Simulated scan of single mutants.
Amino acid sequence: MRIHKILVIALLLVTSLNASAQSIWTIGPMLHVNFGGGQKKSVSFAIETAYWNVNKWPYSVDFGIEFDRKKTRFYSEFQTGIGVAGISAGPVFQVGKGSGAKLGLQVTSWVNYYLGFDYRMIFLRNEKRMGVGTYVKVPIATHGLESSSSGHSHWDSDWD
């Protein structure tokens, strides 16, 4: 019963956010368990930021840096979704001791609002890795918020 209340609140927040803003930035930490590609399982930590345009058709671009044992990945993905679920794909650049530099493709599917879960595949030269992860994102509306008819805020209209 408690999870139902949380889902209803999250749905209301998504609806109100879509109704009041046209663009949103999100930022937050990510934690992944990576496997496949003939390598040992590893746990990686990332920080990711994304820009969402939610006017009419929602689309986004994200940027992240991820630390995985002796490797660092830089990535960017183009995303689309319905607010609580979506898909994304884009380039990934990995550098590391012993493995050199590799350029590849990262494809991700996710479900979220503030707390999210994802499944991703990373295709690098002669290597295919998969990962499951969780993350927390903090949304920040950047423009398109409702304002007065004169086009600017009157938070101080009773100041004098």
Rank of each mutant, 00 (worst) to 15 (best):
M1D: 11
I3C: 03
I6K: 13
I6A: 12
I6E: 14
L7M: 08
L7F: 08
I9W: 12
I9S: 14
V14E: 15
V14S: 12
S16Q: 10
S20L: 12
I24M: 06
W25I: 15
P29D: 02
P29W: 04
M30N: 15
M30V: 04
H32K: 07
N34F: 11
G37R: 01
Q39T: 08
S44W: 04
W52Q: 06
W52H: 13
W52F: 11
N53T: 09
N55V: 01
K56N: 10
W57E: 08
Y59T: 13
S60R: 03
V61L: 11
F67Y: 12
F67A: 03
D68G: 02
R69M: 03
K70H: 10
K70D: 10
T72G: 00
T72R: 08
F74S: 00
Y75H: 11
Y75Q: 01
E77Y: 04
F78N: 04
G83F: 13
G83P: 01
V84S: 06
A85V: 10
G86Y: 02
G86H: 01
S88Y: 00
A89P: 13
A89C: 10
P91V: 00
V92Q: 09
F93G: 04
F93V: 12
Q94D: 00
V95Y: 05
G96M: 06
G96I: 04
K97Y: 10
G98M: 05
G100S: 02
G100P: 06
A101H: 00
K102Q: 15
K102N: 14
V107P: 05
S109V: 14
S109Q: 08
S109W: 04
V111K: 04
N112K: 12
F117A: 14
D118G: 08
D118H: 14
R120Q: 13
F123E: 00
L124I: 02
E127Q: 13
E127D: 14
R129T: 13
G131W: 05
G133I: 06
T134N: 06
P139C: 05
I140Q: 06
I140P: 03
I140W: 11
G144W: 03
E146Y: 02
S150K: 14
G151Y: 07
G151F: 04
H154C: 06
D156V: 00
W159G: 00
W159T: 07
